[in-house]
Amino acid sequence: MITVSVTDGVGLIELDRQERRNALDVEHCRRLAEAVPEVVADGARAIVVTGAGTSFCSGADFGQVYGEGFRTALYTALQAVMDAPVPVVAAVNGPAIGAGTQLAIAADLRVGAPTAVFGVPTARIGLAVDPWTIRRLEQLAGGGTARSLLLACEQIGVEQAYARGLVDRLGDRDAALALAADLATMAPLTLRYNKLVLNRADLPNGDPELLAAFEACWNSEDLQEGQRARAEKRAPVFTGR
């Protein structure tokens, strides 16, 4: 089961399959992919993804990982998280192994609880992750960490992950929700543009999509609201227009 809610502009998507330590099967991957646009449509301006119980996500369900359709469902879900038009925070409340680490790095920011652990032990079982996963790990935590996880199949605890940049903040679910609540007050068009540039490093500076997103910020009502709020010495109220 995946539970979904939106409160004060913050969407919460929770993997709740505790009997399998929140492992992902085809059904849950598809539901996760559906949940992201669902909470955005319900007004979420930031999203928290987390796991129920003591695990964030223990990885792929080995009852299905070798079957037809699993990889497509998994990467569709990860793409939905990465392409969300609002910031996504992973509240890593426990082990995030294999597909769990992939889900965490698909998010824009990661908040790690004391019990958070990351690992991608594919070389021990003969599987492989896609190039995006390898490059994203390197981008977030550096080549040394990526090699430790992928070649040595090491597991990295939260303090080490924080020191290496894989985790952005230390804290529990409440800390992740507080971060998301702060993000939900920021200018949506600016956040969307920043996220687009960060996630699409392959696009040249003159790409029409980038330029359109950039100009949308400068021509927005939110820009004017920011000016008014600064002059009036108050917090701005952005609408994403």
Rank of each mutant, 00 (worst) to 15 (best):
A91C: 02
A84S: 12
T101Y: 07
P114N: 01
A60L: 08
A84R: 03
T50G: 05
V117Y: 12
V81Y: 05
E68Y: 10
A84K: 06
G69S: 02
F118Q: 01
L78T: 00
C57M: 01
T72C: 11
G119C: 06
A91V: 03
V88Y: 04
Y66R: 14
Y75A: 06
T50E: 06
G100M: 07
L127M: 14
A116P: 06
V92C: 06
L103Y: 00
L74M: 10
A116T: 04
G119F: 03
R71L: 13
D108G: 04
A104F: 01
P85S: 15
M82E: 15
L109R: 09
P87I: 02
I105E: 09
G67E: 15
V92Y: 00
F56R: 08
M82D: 14
A99H: 01
F62G: 12
G67P: 03
R71A: 13
P95C: 09
A96H: 05
A44H: 04
D83K: 10
L127H: 09
D61N: 09
G126D: 00
Q102C: 14
G69E: 08
G51P: 05
I105G: 01
V111C: 08
A99K: 02
R71V: 11
D42T: 08
M82S: 15
A41T: 12
Y66W: 14
P114H: 08
A123E: 13
T76F: 10
G94W: 00
G53Q: 03
A77M: 07
A113E: 08
T115R: 15
D42F: 09
A99E: 10
G112P: 01
Y66L: 14
G100N: 03
T76L: 12
A46F: 04
A90F: 01
V111P: 00
Q102Y: 10
L78W: 02
A99I: 07
A128C: 11
Q102E: 15
C57N: 05
P85A: 14
V120S: 09
A41M: 11
G69K: 06
V49P: 00
V117C: 13
V81C: 07
A104P: 07
G63K: 09
T115Y: 11
Q102A: 15
V117N: 11
V117P: 05
G53T: 00
G69F: 02
G94R: 02
R71S: 13
A104K: 00
T54I: 12
Q102G: 09
V86Y: 02
D83S: 12
A91M: 07
P85H: 11
P85C: 11
G59L: 05
G112E: 09
P87L: 08
V65I: 10
A84G: 05
G63Y: 07
D42R: 15
F118Y: 09
G112H: 06
R124V: 14
R45H: 02
G51K: 06
S55P: 00
G98W: 14
Q102K: 11
A96V: 03
N93C: 10
L74Q: 06
A113Q: 00
D108H: 00
R45D: 08
R124G: 10
A46Q: 08
R124A: 15
L127V: 12
F62W: 14
V81M: 09
C57A: 12
P114I: 08
G67C: 13
V120P: 03
D83F: 05
A91Y: 03
A84Q: 07
G98Y: 15
I47G: 04
L127Y: 11
G63V: 04
A52W: 09
A52V: 04
A60D: 06
G63W: 06
T115K: 14
F56E: 02
A90H: 04
E68W: 10
F62S: 13
